[in-house]
Design a protein around this nucleic acid. Structure first.
Length: 634
RNA sequence: GGCGGUGUAGCUCAGGUGGUUAGAGCAUACGGCUCAUAUCCGUAGUGUCGGGGGUUCAAGUCCCUCCACCGCCA
């Protein structure tokens, strides 16, 4: 197979397992890929950005069964959640692959058959301790517990001895080729520390890899032996090939393969840096250029995990701030290989300081001045003086640096450079004080030059931030009066004076409103995420109102007798301004029955009706079908 | 246990091949400006560069040792 052209750029995220709902970790990987891909498109590369979902395997089978669904129903559902999140985060992927689509399944079968024919796959017996939850055999050096069983070191669950016939991939035969490849390509894995780990892992010796299961039904079956399904990892990794046309569009495959970057989390390094190249060598494909392993986001210094219940839902941030601030924070805070810490304080601090104060405020002050002094259109332009030239030269230097850092996937450094320039523009304005010149009519031309120069700089800034802040970037672009879409100006065409001096600019609302930390935390508190277990502590039941009467001397309170199936409870509700007591009788309502008894106006209330609050008035929900009193509400 | 890495200002970190007063951002204090989202600009700091020992005219930077933390070892 031929190598693709120099300008082709193929970037992937891992395909995400549909057993899990999307969380901040998925968002992080995908945002990195999106930012890099957007930059590369500006820089003129022929970019292909692939993401997708991994839908086979025992865990999916199991959790679908628990939810009373078929595996594909579960997958369909979770895929929608991923796609919705990507849309909200402005992820512009070129294709979304699902491992359940026929083109993928057939492709994997074909490669499997090819390796089998070649003798790299053979049939054998595997026996070992198997962890169902992690879908993996335990390492042999995991020691036996007192009960004579082994515990999975990752998930702490009991493992079973499994002995099964399966097919093996001759990984052991690829030890030398892999070492050789690593030596010739010392930056194959990034960051460097991960490359070291991979090399030392392979040097310890490789055993053959079991790549089929007879115990798992939900998977791609072997072409000629349907009692076996292909193990999820062999299945999933090949999506990088089937996703760009392997076995269905050879032209596209040739155009983009080998991949330029596989972006991954550090937990799946071995699969990508050892198994994957071995599979590829075996099947005769060129190897990807780079495997980039990024770190984890910790929440308030602790690892996020489902059992701790501290997994950060990206929607919490998205709903409150929108996409750009989240993208900015994740990409600015840490270099790609390191772990980072996510705290609301840190997030808000950075967003306020960098986005609101530095960039947002710059946009605002500049547009306001152009509006106030020139009615939005600069109509006179003095000569460029030294201070003006310096700003322009700094722009040229920054343009080089930003490009260099993006090419090196050092997005945080690129942003750092952009912000150095933003600070320079703010300083330029402070030094030249256009607001003073504005008071002197003889200085019109000088004033025009300063505002024009600063606006040219701002145009460049809005261009630079596009890969990270696509939404705000384009908004700024338009405020500066640009009609042509930003993406149509290539990185090499970008120049300081591309802005027309008499371009009509517009004022706008602040681009990034400052956020008050205390205020945000209060709101966060009030809509704090609870677990299902928390929710289950509330005993909600259908109750039938048997009696109802106005509480004497009040406008709103009604005293009711409510049948909750097992008994009749007395409750007080503040709903009389909407409902007359007599029209309540016979109504089926939702009540919380394990609420601590309260005494209202001297009357005991042993529960509470649920109601929507609209304009201060309570509105009771009703069932569309008949339900018995006492039925549980979930 | 084996291999690899980290430890630098209150916090997060930068500091190729050893070389004058060890840096940045944030936070803090003070000053300036008023076009701007109580924003912006300027000034001021503070550090036994994890501990100890060594090589050298000279070490955060090299060597030894100890301590603490982290990653990988199917």
């Amino acid at each position: 197979m031929e190598e693709n052209s120099e300008t082709s750029f193929y970037i992937t995220t891992p395909i995400y397992y549909v057993n899990d709902v999307p969380h901040i970790g998925h968002a992080y990987t995908t945002i990195i890929a999106d930012a890099i891909s957007r930059f590369k498109k500006l820089a003129g590369y022929d970019v292909f950005f692939l993401t997708g979902t991994d839908e086979h395997g025992q865990k999916v089978e199991k959790s679908a069964a628990e939810k009373g669904m078929t595996p594909i129903q579960l997958a369909d559902k979770v895929v929608v959640r991923f796609k919705n999140l990507w849309e909200a985060l402005d992820i512009a992927f070129d294709s979304f692959i699902r491992t359940t689509q026929p083109s993928h399944e057939q492709g994997v079968q074909k490669i499997f058959q090819k390796l089998k024919d070649k003798g790299d796959i053979y049939k054998g017996i595997y026996e070992g301790w198997y962890c169902v939850s992690d879908e993996t055999f335990l390492s042999e050096d995991v020691s036996l517990e007192d009960g004579g069983h082994k515990i999975c070191p990752d998930c702490r669950q009991k493992a079973n001895v499994v002995s099964e016939e399966c097919y093996f991939f001759k990984l052991s035969a690829y030890e030398e080729p892999l070492i050789d490849f690593y030596q010739k390509n010392p930056t194959f894995v990034r960051p460097q520390s991960r490359m070291n780990e991979v090399v030392s892992f392979v040097r310890q010796g490789l055993k053959d890899l079991s790549i089929t299961r007879t115990t798992v039904k939900w998977g791609i079956s072997l072409p000629d032996d349907s009692s076996h399904t292909i193990y999820v990892w062999f299945d999933a990794l090949h999506s990088y090939l089937t996703g760009i046309g392997y076995d269905w569009d050879s032209q596209r495959l040739d155009r983009y393969w080998p991949a330029t970057v596989h972006l991954i989390g550090k937990d799946i390094l071995r699969h990508h840096a050892v198994f994957w190249p071995a599979f590829l060598i075996a099947a005769g494909f060129p190897l990807p250029k780079t495997i980039y392993a990024h770190g984890w986001w910790l929440k308030d210094e602790t690892k996020m995990s489902k059992s701790r219940g501290n997994v950060l839902d990206p929607w919490t941030i998205l709903n409150a701030f929108g996409s750009d601030p989240l993208r900015y924070f994740l990409l600015r805070e840490i270099p790609i290989g390191l772990d980072g810490n996510f705290s609301h304080e840190g997030f808000i601090h950075r967003v306020n300081s960098d986005l609101a104060n530095d960039l947002g405020n710059l946009v605002q002050r500049l547009l306001t001045m152009i509006h106030n002094y020139f009615g939005g259109q600069i109509n006179t332009l003095g000569e460029e003086t030294d201070t003006d030239i310096n700003l322009r030269l700094e722009f040229d230097a920054i343009k080089e640096k930003v490009s260099h850092h993006f090419e090196d996937y050092a997005i945080n450094k690129a942003l750092e450079e952009i912000w150095v320039f933003i600070n320079s523009v703010n300083k330029y304005l402070a030094d030249n004080a256009p607001w003073k010149l504005a008071k002197d009519d003889s200085q019109r031309a000088r004033l025009g030059r300063i505002l024009y120069q600063a606006t040219c700089a701002l145009r460049g800034i809005s261009y630079f931030v596009y890969p990270v802040l696509p939404e705000s970037s384009q908004k700024m672009w338009q405020l500066l009066g640009e009609k042509k879409p930003l993406e149509e100006e290539s990185y090499s065409e970008l120049a300081f004076f591309n802005l027309k001096p008499d371009q009509k600019t517009q004022k706008s609302e602040p681009l990034f409103p400052r956020v008050d930390l205390k205020h945000f935390l209060q709101e966060e508190e009030s809509m704090d995420i609870i677990t299902f277990d928390d929710f289950k502590r509330m005993d909600l039941r259908v109750g039938e109102i048997i009696e109802a009467e106005r509480v004497e001397g009040t406008d709103k309170l009604v005293k009711m007798q409510v049948n909750i199936g097992t008994e009749t409870r007395q409750m007080i509700g503040g709903i009389a301004d909407k409902y007359a007591p007599e029209e309540l009788i016979g109504k089926k309502v939702v009540v919380i029955v394990n609420l601590k008894t309260a005494v209202i106006r001297g009357i005991e209330s042993q529960g509470m009706l649920l109601a929507a609050e609209v304009d201060g008035k309570a509105i009771i929900p009703v069932f569309t079908e008949d339900v018995p009193a006492g039925a549980k509400v979930l």
